[in-house]
Design a protein around this nucleic acid. Sequence first.
RNA 1: UCCUCAGUAGCUCAGUUGGUUAGAGCACCUGACUGUUAAUCAGGGGGUCGUAGGUUCAAAUCCUACCUGGGGAGCCA
Length: 481
Amino acid sequence: MEQRRSFIKDLLQSTEVDREVNAKGWVRTKRGNKQVAFVALNDGSTINNIQVVVDMANFDENLIKDITTGASLSVTGTLVKSMGQGQSVEIQAKEIEIYGTADSETYPLQKKGHSLEFLREIAHLRFRTNTFGAVFRIRHAMAFAIHNYFNDRNFYYLHTPIVTGSDAEGAGEMFRVSTFEPGKEPKTEEGKIDYTEDFFGKETNLTVSGQLEAELGATALSNVYTFGPTFRAENSNTPRHLAEFWMIEPEMAFYDIHDDMDLAEDMLKYLVKYALDNCIDDLKFLENRLIEEEKSKPQNERSEMPLIEKLQFILNDDFVRLTYTEAVDILKNSKPAKKGKFQFPVEWGIDLQSEHERYLVEKHFKKPVILIDYPRDIKAFYMKQNDDGKTVRAMDILFPGIGEIIGGSQREENYDKLSARIKEMGIPEKDMWWYLETRKFGTVPHSGFGLGFERLVLFVTGMSNIRDVIPFPRTPKNAEF
RNA sequence: UCCUCAGUAGCUCAGUUGGUUAGAGCACCUGACUGUUAAUCAGGGGGUCGUAGGUUCAAAUCCUACCUGGGGAGCCA
C-alpha cells in the first residue's frame, strides 16, 4: 500500500517510531561508505533535515549515484530511533524514487556556505539554502501574524487599487501604466501626450501608497488596513530600499496621534513575539549564522547583542516617545554635534538625517524611538496641523539598524485647513475631490501609519540587505526572475 | 544620482616594488574506509585574471573608460 507523505517537521517531532513512513524532499548532503550512505533530506517544512539511512546492499548502485546534493526524492522506509548521534529519529530506507537528478558538475549550490551576493544572482535556487528557507518561513509567519493581529481587533482588510489615477500623494516617483505603444502615443493639439486616448482615459500609475483610499474605508468601517505591493520609481541604491515592496497601512477612525502610536508599538511587539513563539528554530539558525559572519569583522562593527536577545529586548521596554523639537535639542547638545562630527549640522526645521536618527536610537536611547510633531514644511499635506502653526501630528518610529520602520500621522480632518494646505502645496484640487468630500460629510478625527513589511522582516531575521528578505527583489537596473 | 571599495578556478579568497609555467581551501571526478553529522584520507581535472583601450622589452599588478557587485549618502517604508 502506498504510504502517505509526511512532512519532515512532523517526522522529526514524532515519538511514534518503528512505523513505515514516506518523506519527499531535496537532498542537502550525502555521505557514507560502500556499506551505508546517509542522506540529509529537506522539504522546507523546517530548517532541520531528516537523515535517510541507505543500506547499499539493498539498492542499485546507479540509483545511489544519482542521489546528489539538489536531487529530489521520495523515500519510503521505517522511522526508527537513530543509532548515531545528532538526531533522535531517522528513516531506514526501503524504497527510493528519484524525481529529478541535479548534476553535481553544474548544480550551483554546495554543501558549504555561499555569499548572499552570489545567492542573489541565483534567486530561483536560493530558497533551497538554510538561510533563505529560514527567512521566507519567517516572512510568511509575519504576514500571517499581521492578518491575525488586525482580525482580532476589528480591523477589515481593504484592497486598495494597484493602478491609481492620482499623483497627489507625493510619496515619490511613480511607474506609469499605459497601453500606448512607445513612440506612437497620440498627441494633443499642443503636442503633449493625449492620455484621454489611453486605456483608462487618463494618466495612471502604479500605487505609491494605499493610504488615501484606506482613509475612505476608515470613515465607514472604522478600522481598516491594507497589505499590498507598493511601487516607487526612485533611483535608490541602498540595502533598505526596493522599487517594489509590501506595505501595511492601517487607518483608524476616532484615533488621535497617541492612539496611533499605541497601536503601532503594540503591533510591532506582537509581531516580534509571534516570531519568537513560532519561528525559534529558524531564528536560532539565523542568530548563529550572524555570529559566524561577524567573527571576521572587527569588534566595533559587531552587533551589541545576539539576534534573539535583541528581539526579546524590544518586548521588554516601552519605546521612547519625544517631539521633534526635543530631539533637535538632544542632538544639538550631543557630543558629535559639539565636536562637529555630524556631516549635516542640526537646526530646527531640517529633516533629520540618517546620522542623526542613528545617534538617537543607537547611541543616546539605545532602544526604539518614536518622534512626533515634525515641522509642517517637511511633511505631507494630509497631516493634522498643530495649533502652533509650525508643526504637524506626524510620528516616525525609528529602529536600530533599520532607521524608519513606520511613518504615520493623525490626519487633517478639518475641511478648510486641508483644502488650504492642498492649495498651498500646489496639489491639483480637481484630482482630490473625493478625498476632500470625506471631510465635508461626517468628518472624524482619524490616524494611520505605514509599516514597511520588508523592513520588519529585515529586523526580525537580522538580515542586513532588504534584497535578501523578498523573494525576487526589484531594484534599479534589476528585474531578473 | 553622488562618494568609496571590490571584480583572479564552480564558490570563497591569496598573488610582494610590474618579471619564468597564476596559487590555496572548499566543491567536482577517481579510489580507500562497516554509522556518517557541512564525514575523513589519498590522487586527479579545472583559469581569455570583469570588458575595451592604453603605457611598457614585459601587465592579474600601472593609467583611462565602461559594466557588475558591496558599503556609505540622498529619496523613503
